[in-house]
Amino acid sequence: IFLMSVTVFPVRLLLVSSLMFLGWPFAFIASMGRSDYIMEPQSWWRRFVDVCLRAIMRALWFCSGFHWIKVKGERAKPSEVPILTMAPHSSYFDAIPVTMNMCSIVTKLESRSIPVWGTLISYIRPVFVFRSDQASRRKTVEEIKRRANSGGEWPQIMIFPEGTCTNRSGLILYKAGMCSNPFWFQEMAK
């Protein structure tokens, strides 16, 4: 462990940091001038940026030690399944499926201010929630419903309904909102 800590770890850390800083300008430029509420057709250069960012993020996870990521099954189209629910939310490595698919996520507003990573989060057009404000929670649910009913115009939304990281020993209660509402699917159909 000592030998790997002084040889392999610094190299991996350098590579991961370099890839994050390489991805930042792509995400920053592609996010400029883009509305968070209106879905406009994605131009050719934004599609190019999307492909580049997927490649950079895959290289980042490879350098982090995730050499082979096995995917079972096929990903459903956003028009068929607008919302993906994932649980348990146990670590920051849960970002792997987000970056592989460039799905939108529901995240706390404070995530936007994380240096470098916050720009990458903003690029995927997340639904931000201010956790201490009840009105913000309601607006978040409304925004998720609006995007889900867009007919596939918006990227899929990946939700971690626990709302926080856990120790993976079991599921905790889901946060109050649409995932805890048993009639949520009926509401979505309306």
Rank of each mutant, 00 (worst) to 15 (best):
S18K: 03
V6P: 06
S150W: 01
S5V: 12
E162C: 02
K190A: 13
I38C: 06
S17K: 07
P10L: 08
V71K: 02
M100G: 09
G151R: 02
T140S: 06
E110F: 10
L109R: 05
S90F: 09
F183R: 00
E187M: 05
M39D: 09
F93D: 02
Y123S: 02
F21T: 10
S180C: 14
K70P: 03
T99Q: 10
P41Q: 08
T7C: 14
I69H: 04
K175C: 15
C52H: 02
A55Y: 13
A135Y: 06
R146I: 09
E110M: 10
I144Y: 00
R46Q: 12
M158T: 02
M4R: 12
A135C: 10
W184A: 07
S18E: 07
F2Q: 08
V81K: 03
P115F: 10
A27S: 07
F21P: 00
A87Q: 04
S35H: 06
I144G: 00
L13M: 13
E40A: 14
A27C: 14
S17Y: 10
H89G: 05
K77Q: 10
P88C: 05
V129D: 02
R146W: 05
I105W: 00
L22E: 12
P78M: 08
E74F: 04
F28H: 05
S79V: 14
M100Q: 13
W68T: 11
F130A: 11
Q134E: 14
N149H: 11
R131S: 10
H89L: 10
E74G: 03
L19P: 03
V98A: 15
N181L: 10
N101L: 09
S18H: 08
L60T: 11
S113T: 09
F183E: 07
A87V: 11
V49K: 02
M57D: 11
W117F: 15
T166C: 00
L53S: 13
S17C: 13
